[in-house]
Amino acid sequence: MPRVLPLLTVFLTLSTALAGGGEAPTVTLNNPNCHPVVGTVTFRTATDPAASRRLAQLFAQDQADRAAQPIDWSKVAPADQARRAEALRLLNAGRLSQSEDFYHAAFLFQHGDCPQHYELANLLAQQAMSRGSPSAGWLYAATYDRWMLSLGRPQKYGTQFVTEPEGCGVKLAPYDPATTDAERTRYGAPTLAVALRQADKLSALCQARQQAP
């Protein structure tokens, strides 16, 4: 299990390095069970329109694969892995720097297969926020929640749901009751009451689909 640095410390370190125009912030995330293995990545500031366009295409593919229901995971899972690998190559080559680049890459790694992918997704969402993305707040909260759950810890913001093994029961994944609604809404996450109602709606929708002729 990786050593978890205080999130605020990581965010301030990366943001300070970026704003100061000094050495580019770097993070190392090693886990041989990740596909791909992350290793050391550096968040740079160079502009590469071709890389931005390519990452936008990868993001669109990711979303399209999840629009079709039911999802064929035998096809989507390897496609996800390939998209993550390509995004990581672009990141390591120093070709990603725009807020939307990091937003798109964070989405790809949010669909990862290990805690280090979710941690990287959270750091990418932080970079998107620090570079002016107006919609990265919710992604920051969601990637943090997914990261914590992957470590066996409760989520903080209440963005993640789980389905019961049998039937259509959907509920909010274990969450930290100390988190306030003010903390949640600061990043665009719903209040706890809204999230709990959403779980009920998802359960009802699943049941309606099962009962349909």
Rank of each mutant, 00 (worst) to 15 (best):
G94W: 15
T143W: 01
P165V: 00
S97E: 08
C168G: 06
G158T: 09
F107N: 10
A141M: 02
H104I: 05
R153I: 08
V170H: 12
S130A: 04
V162N: 04
A141N: 09
D101Q: 10
S99L: 03
T163Q: 11
W138V: 04
L151S: 05
E166F: 12
C114M: 02
F102S: 12
R95F: 05
D145W: 01
F107C: 08
C114T: 12
T143M: 08
A173W: 03
V170E: 09
G132T: 14
S130G: 05
E164D: 12
V162R: 13
P174I: 14
S130W: 13
G132P: 11
P154W: 01
Q98C: 05
L151N: 08
M129T: 05
M129K: 08
L149Y: 13
R153M: 03
S150C: 02
S150H: 02
Q126I: 01
L172Q: 09
E164S: 08
G169S: 12
D145E: 01
L139H: 11
S97K: 00
A105R: 14
P115N: 08
L123A: 02
N122A: 10
E166A: 15
G132K: 07
A173R: 04
M129W: 13
L91W: 13
Q126R: 10
G137F: 11
L149I: 06
L90N: 07
A141L: 10
R153Y: 01
L124Q: 03
G132C: 11
Q126K: 03
T159W: 15
D113Q: 14
M148G: 00
D145H: 03
N92F: 11
H117P: 13
P174E: 01
W147P: 01
A125F: 01
H104K: 08
D101S: 14
H104T: 04
C168W: 15
A128C: 06
L120S: 06
A121Y: 03
F107A: 08
M129V: 11
P154Q: 13
F161A: 03
R131K: 14
R95K: 15
F109W: 02
K171Q: 04
P134S: 12
